[in-house]
């Protein structure tokens, strides 16, 4: 079994290893990529910090507590962006007709697309999220117990799965939109922006869209509330932070339905 698994994943591993090598071969260019990628993370954090420069508390959370929300959400987003972010290139493949090449190989389309690239530069951005998370975990007064450690792990895995699902959902929608790619950006990148906010400041329509339909509040905000022992807004129960895996499963149902519809809709590049 292990042997057949190794054999089956070999083509993907070969492609990924070659992509990783190719990115590191131009050292200067890779260094610039890493630096600008890190700057993205730093500036995203600065956008939140300048608000707290003016006020002590936003949506019931202080800056140190927001660091935890930001750290969780941004770490998960960066990791998903690194591994699934190139689903964004789908409109380019669709317009150029190069997607058809993937159809010629005896491997599943989505798996090929996902493993066709890995953006190592985004590791730098993930590092910013990781540092924010570690600082957030240290400076806040958390009553550590095994349950807290477990929730932290559950939140990271589920958050990663949710953002990855968002990229796949958007990819499926691209088969219909092509030129209208920005429509999905509203929810993928808008979702990242939403995920790093204290969701307690949202109104009900925003909760409907980014709280539950695209469950962005479950990536950072709600698990962080449970870790911090802060009450959840909207009269949500205390344990709602533990529902992150359910939210992740829901995201992937949406993602796979969207992908399947998109692939069925695709008629080929006409080459």
């Amino acid at each position: 079994m292990a042997d057949s698994l190794g054999a089956r994943t070999r083509p993907y591993r070969a492609v990924l290893a070659s992509r990783a090598r190719s990115q590191r071969s131009y050292r200067a260019s890779f260094a610039v990529d890493l630096a600008s990628s890190m700057l993205v993370g730093v500036i995203e954090l600065a956008e939140i910090w300048v608000l707290f420069h003016n006020v002590v508390e936003l949506g019931g959370l202080e800056f140190s507590q927001i660091l935890l929300v930001f750290g969780l959400a941004d770490l998960c987003f960066s990791l998903a962006d690194m591994t699934f972010g190139h689903c964004d290139n789908l409109p380019t493949y669709l317009r150029a007709g190069t997607l058809d090449v993937f159809y010629l190989r005896p491997q599943p389309l989505l798996l090929q697309l996902v493993t066709s690239d890995i953006s190592l530069r985004r590791l730098a951005r993930a590092a910013v999220g990781a540092v924010a998370l570690v600082v957030g975990l240290t400076v806040n007064d958390i009553a550590w117990s095994p349950a807290h450690v477990l929730l932290l792990l559950v939140a990271i895995v589920s958050g990663y799965a949710m953002f990855a699902g968002m990229f796949v959902w958007a990819g499926g929608a691209q088969f219909f939109l092509v030129e209208g790619a920005e429509t999905t950006n509203a929810f993928v990148y808008g979702g990242r922006y939403a995920a790093t906010q204290p969701a307690s400041v949202w109104n009900r329509p925003l909760w409907a869209v980014f709280g539950f339909f695209f469950p962005m509040a479950f990536t950072g905000f709600l698990p962080a509330l449970w870790l911090l022992g802060v009450e959840a807004p909207l009269g949500l129960p205390d344990w709602v932070g533990w529902c992150a895996p359910v939210a992740a499963a829901w995201t992937w149902v949406m993602a796979l339905v969207s992908w399947r519809l998109g692939v069925r809709h695709y008629q080929g590049g006409g080459g």
Partner: peptide, 19 residues
């Protein structure tokens, strides 16, 4: 594409309003 941009503008706008 312009319509997609409008959707994105409005969504980000509502999030900016909230925060």
């Amino acid at each position: 594409a312009a319509f997609g941009g409008l959707v994105a503008n409005t969504t980000f706008g509502l999030l900016k309003v909230a925060i």
